[in-house]
Write a protein that binds this DNA or RNA. Structure first.
Lengths: 187, 187
DNA sequence: CATAATCTGGTGCTTAAGCAACAAAACAGA
DNA sequence: TCTGTTTTGTTGCTTAAGCACCAGATTATG
């Protein structure tokens, strides 16, 4: 594993591996994709894969993060103020992300869902933590961390529930959910 | 300049350079394409270009030969017997090749025509020489070489004339030309 | 016409990637 | 369950490709 770097060769092989992987996801399921499949598609030696990624899961993680930040969370890069509106836009982003991913990688989406979940929750936690830190500069970091963790799991669970059970629009669902939650779990 | 080799890196960069070049030919004219243009498109360092090709003309030559042999002259690979039918099929191949090339590389075709001409005539000469050698095993090689040269220029000139001036189909043109020629230049 | 900018072809050194070979793990199938 | 096959990670050595820099040729531009 070599760290990121500006050498043209590294940029190029990274790109090819990722492109090949994404292409494979569109027609095979994640579990049945081998490293050899990926590297053949990328026109790269199998050993070279391990110069860039620990394993298939590491690759998935990096791809997901990249997709997420470049396509979906770009409106959140300048971390928003922490409030209900911010939670809503994060929720919407995740649902969008799930939709586009499940559409592009039908075969693989279920395979990968547990991995995706843990990656995304970690990402969300980081986003919430920063946002909370900005708002509550004097609070103890541990409190912030705990809150960020709980929030990330809540929002993610909402996104999963929406995908599996809801007919509402993401926006409506979120409004409905937040009202319900606040009503039933009175602070 | 390194010779052909089975190393994956060499195969890959060759392919990328050639692909990039062909892509550029479709939108720019040959003369205005720089090595940097080619290597940028190929995601390859400029110096690497010179590991594979002497210059732009060398690249063109290799591309033309490759295209020619892989797409057009494939029916001639098992060298045919030397006769009028063989001349005709070579002629047709060249006209086809010119057509597809000028269609794909409108901007560049005129730019490159002198280069293409010399490459193709050399190729034709080789084809005719082999074919003659097969038919006239006892003749002096110099006689065969001279004949092959003359034939290659003749056929090529016919292809050029057809492209510039004729409304006939390549087949009709060839029949017409061969009859005319034989009539006017009685052996 | 001059001169700045770009392009060419080349060099020396460094580094990513290829290759082959390996043991261990995972899988498949009788 | 045993047994052969495939896949996975890893390693040592070799080589293609990257990079930076060069001088000379071409091409633009005022």
């Amino acid at each position: 594993m070599i760290e990121q770097n500006t050498d043209l060769r590294m940029i190029r092989t990274r790109k090819f591996i990722i492109d090949s992987f994404i292409q494979l996801l569109e027609k095979k399921d994640f579990n049945s994709i081998t490293i050899k499949d990926i590297t053949s598609g990328a026109m790269v030696n199998r050993a070279t894969f391990y110069h860039h990624f620990v394993d298939k899961f590491d690759l998935l993680e990096k791809v997901i993060k990249k997709e997420l930040t470049s396509n979906v969370l770009k409106e959140l890069t300048n971390i928003e103020d922490f409030n209900d509106q911010m939670l809503k836009s994060v929720f919407i982003s995740i649902t969008k992300f799930h939709m586009s991913l499940s559409e592009r990688c039908q075969r693989s989406f279920d395979d990968m869902s547990v991995n995706i979940e843990s990656i995304l929750k970690k990402e969300l936690e980081g986003i919430f933590f920063q946002s909370l830190q900005k708002k509550y500069q004097d609070e103890d970091n541990e409190e912030l961390r705990i809150t960020a963790t709980l929030l990330s799991w809540m929002i993610y669970s909402a996104a999963v529930d929406w995908r599996l059970h809801s007919e509402k629009s993401p926006e409506d669902y979120f409004e409905y959910a937040i009202v319900s939650f606040k009503k039933l779990v009175k602070n």
